[in-house]
Simulated scan of single mutants.
Amino acid sequence: MLQGETHIVNDTIYSCHTSCELLNAGTWQSELETLVQWLEKNPYDVVTFLIVNSDFAQGTTVTNYTAAIEASGIRQYLYEPDYVPQHRSQWPTLGEMILAGQRVVMFMDYNANQTEVPYVLGLSKDLAEENYMYIANHNLNFNIDVSAIIGSGGSILIPNTAEMNVTNGDALQYGRLGAMSENCTGKSCALADTSRKTGYVY
């Protein structure tokens, strides 16, 4: 599975972490073009791709992403479901997806709209919270103050790689997958977007 945080700067989507001033990995279209090259060399692989729409609160929607999708050449590989939403029993097999040439399943975390853009999958927040455990994003980070670089109140989350054994552990304590699973079960997997230090389910 691929996932990446995106931001729009001067009407162009970039792959950035927290802020494009801090970490800019280039245009999102170039990332898709790299994936297209990989798909051409690996014709029997299926990929899932999560678009992290970090500017959703500013009104960025799935339609902002379609130009890069078309220009990159990845559109031909995108899986387009027959049902919205699509339940587990309605999914094709991996073999069927490979034979159809639809080997990339693209999701968006916020502001997807399958009526407008059917090949980018996503549910409304309300529907997801009430009926599905749609996405579980689990991570443990350090919060670094970078206000001296980007101004007052600036911070960036850095992955806490030194404690991956804690983050991915099964014991029921802070930051561990076991604790997240227990929390999700206790709340029927209807959690709103909580602190990204421990992840979110919606």
Score class of each variant (00 low, 15 high):
M1H: 08
M1D: 07
L2Q: 06
Q3F: 05
E5D: 14
T12H: 05
T18R: 10
C20D: 11
L23F: 09
L23Y: 11
A25V: 08
G26P: 13
Q29D: 12
E33I: 10
E33N: 11
W38T: 09
W38C: 02
L39I: 13
E40R: 05
E40N: 11
K41C: 08
K41H: 13
N42F: 06
V46N: 09
T48E: 13
F49R: 02
I51Y: 02
D55Q: 04
A57Y: 14
A57C: 12
T60H: 06
T61E: 15
A68N: 11
S72F: 09
Y79M: 12
E80I: 02
P85L: 02
H87D: 15
Q90F: 04
Q90L: 04
L94R: 05
M97F: 06
M97L: 11
M97P: 08
M97I: 03
R103M: 12
R103C: 12
V105K: 02
V117P: 04
G122C: 05
L123V: 08
L123R: 05
E129S: 13
E130C: 03
N131R: 14
N131D: 15
Y132K: 04
A136V: 08
L140M: 14
N143G: 04
N143L: 10
N143S: 09
S147I: 01
A148H: 09
I149K: 14
G154F: 00
G154N: 01
S155H: 14
L157D: 12
P159E: 03
N160C: 10
N165F: 13
V166K: 10
V166I: 12
T167H: 09
N168M: 13
L177D: 07
L177C: 07
A179D: 15
A179H: 08
E182Y: 13
S188M: 12
S188G: 12
C189G: 07
V201C: 14
Y202Q: 01
